[in-house]
Design a protein around this nucleic acid. Structure first.
Lengths: 370, 370
DNA sequence: CCACTGTCTGGAATCGTTACCACAATCTGA
DNA sequence: TCAGATTGTGGTAACGATTCCAGACAGTGG
């Protein structure tokens, strides 16, 4: 490995001088600068971020702790974070924690040992105690997409998120305006603030419409496809009556769809469906689901920019950014269709037993032809 | 910050002893071990990965350099990588390089300065010279999803990828079997090996079927939605005649769809469409597109496991894993439909001028009700 | 009783970098 | 001409951890 001393020896100067050239700090004569730069190039010297980090106590690295990088919402958040970070020459350490408290704890511990300059986290729950390690060591922190349940006066954290309450309220009100009175709510983990907020928005909408809320219609689970399947199944099995389903996020929504299709229940004719967060690319060519979308990219980008600002001491008082969301009404509630489209645009598209998908294993074509 | 010396002082021993306790190395009496462990807990000591890395020259960190974490294919690869890495206590540094050579170079430089234990990269092109920095410093490297165009005898790298040639051949042969003779191929950047291989598979299929290959039908661009739009537009503008389109990956495919819908061209009645790599979640509720899928998760997972094995010296000779792919025939070629479904399952689903999507800005609901 | 082995602990050096301080050389202005 | 500022360079210590080596002590066998 080429070190600063190697460069120094090669250029006939001291390591200190090389450091000055590399960091453009202090006085260096033009002549020596050139000698040093030549040596750096010749030897292919790259400064060790580790040694520098050890000395400076700065790593130019942020940790990004997310529930699931497979979900396009989080993916887009990550993309926003990465773009903002890259622009300012920060690197991103990615941790996928699956809404699993244990994994989150492990990730936090690892992150602390890595001495990152800051942490972007979508915490599983709103308990500050679970972020205690960050607080103790006063690591600059930005909460992404979610809230904390407590206000912590002596720990300034920033928060960037959508307004789940207003979004959920809008979605529910939309369903009510279409005549639905019994709306099932299948949400995420009860401890997650977005799950809480979306149920809250749902409640507010019902209340404003003068509809009493049937607690049996509210189910908490997880923000995953499989949970969407199970919760739908659960509601059906218990014979609970409802004409619409509000899925707490896109993954749950997909699970609901899977289960409804399996049961041969048509959307929207038999059950209307809305969910929180879009599937952007799918919706483009098949704009079927009525959803609330958030600007995930902007959430990620803003969060990263805030973190940079905090990490570099540009601000220290806690800030909260609440980004607006949009209600996109499409076809999964039946509201947009005339008689013709009504029969056309419903899921399952064709009778499920006619739906086929043939899978062929493709044999490898090796060795390659020239 | 709590250091090893703080713990040592608190426990009344030397830092060396603390180190031994933490790493379970060397002799430590039961009594001192307990004293030290108590001190560690009391002070909340977390060893500095940086200091340790500087000393040991190991960071337990891998870099993952990908074209686009927004594409579900790469997302799933990343997920496989993360899972495997987490299991073995490795962290992942994520770099998004957008098929941009400049960004890739910057990422490589950063990665080298971070002294990662290994690199997982989907290189933009197959030129070894562009990976020179990794080779020079002999950083353990695994190529993901792609190939190198040269064999490098003195630089052992592992490769994990699908067999793009056989996949593309299968897709093309499928189109040919449905009677298509003029098939447009809209691929990625000509320098990317998967773009090359998919065109190669396309050529082989045509050749085997005795169809001469019209070079005007082959267009190279980028693996992006916007490029799919442009390439389709380009083909149309030039009035080139074809009855089917083969899109080089899912993003390009989406661009093709967007442009065809814009032009009011129906899929598959007017033009059949296939593409490489599925959109898993979209295909679940709307299984429309005939595609070749790869096991992206397995590619990522295998790559990470190989890298761990290489980084820990378990193997050193170069290995190449070529994972099989699957042809999934659905509806975008019209082959699966009887007369009824034929008219039902085509894109755009309804006349595009009837398709509507209403967007409402949701007002923020602040301050929150209690 | 002595040599030897095994157990336990700590001091010093080291990893690659930068901050601080010291010092020399040159330049400026009265 | 000389004090004082400006410019240029290097030595030393430190960041937090681990490895190597040395030494102390206890137990064992001849």
């Amino acid at each position: 490995m080429v070190t600063i001393s190697d460069v120094a020896r090669c250029a006939g100067v001291s390591p200190v001088t090389v450091s000055r050239v590399v960091n453009r700090s202090g006085y260096v004569s033009e002549k020596t600068r050139q000698k040093v730069e030549k040596a750096i190039k010749e030897l292919g010297y790259i400064p060790s971020a580790m040694a520098r980090g050890l000395r400076l106590n700065r790593t130019y690295t942020f940790a990004l702790i997310l529930p699931d990088i497979t979900n396009p919402f989080w993916t887009t958040v990550a993309r926003g974070v990465e773009d903002a970070a890259q622009q300012r020459e920060y690197s991103i350490l990615l941790y996928n924690v699956d809404e699993d408290m244990h994994k989150q704890e492990r990730a936090l511990e690892t992150v602390l040992s890595q001495q990152v300059d800051g942490v972007l986290i979508a915490p599983h729950d709103g308990l500050v105690s679970h972020l205690q390690p960050l607080r103790m060591r006063s690591v600059p922190t930005v909460i992404v997409d979610r809230r904390l349940n407590e206000v912590v006066p002596d720990w300034p954290v920033d928060i960037v998120r959508g307004d789940s309450i207003s979004g959920a309220k809008a979605l529910t009100t939309h369903l009510i305006s279409l005549g639905h009175r019994k709306i099932a709510m299948v949400s995420g983990d009860e401890r997650t603030t977005t799950a809480q907020d979306r149920v809250m928005g749902y409640r507010i909408a019902l209340q404003e419409a003068g509809i009493s809320c049937d607690e049996n219609l509210i189910v908490y689970g997880e923000f995953r496809v499989s949970a969407g399947v199970e919760m739908t199944n659960h509601l059906m099995e218990r014979g609970i009556n409802f004409s619409a389903i509000f899925a707490g996020n896109n993954a749950i929504g997909m699970g609901v769809v899977r289960e409804l299709i399996r049961r041969g229940i048509r959307i929207p004719e038999e059950i209307a469906l809305v969910f929180y967060d879009d599937y952007a690319n799918a919706s483009e060519y098949f704009p079927f689901f009525t959803v609330v979308t958030q600007n995930a990219y902007q959430i990620g980008r803003t969060a990263a920019e805030l973190l940079i600002s905090r990490a570099t001491g540009e601000h220290s008082e806690p800030r909260e950014f609440i980004l607006p969301s949009r209600l996109v009404t499409r076809y999964s509630c039946g509201s947009m269709l005339d008689d013709h489209h009504q029969s056309l645009l419903s899921l399952p598209i064709v009778n499920p037993k006619d739906l086929k998908e043939v899978v062929w294993e493709v044999p490898l074509l090796l060795p390659y032809p020239a």
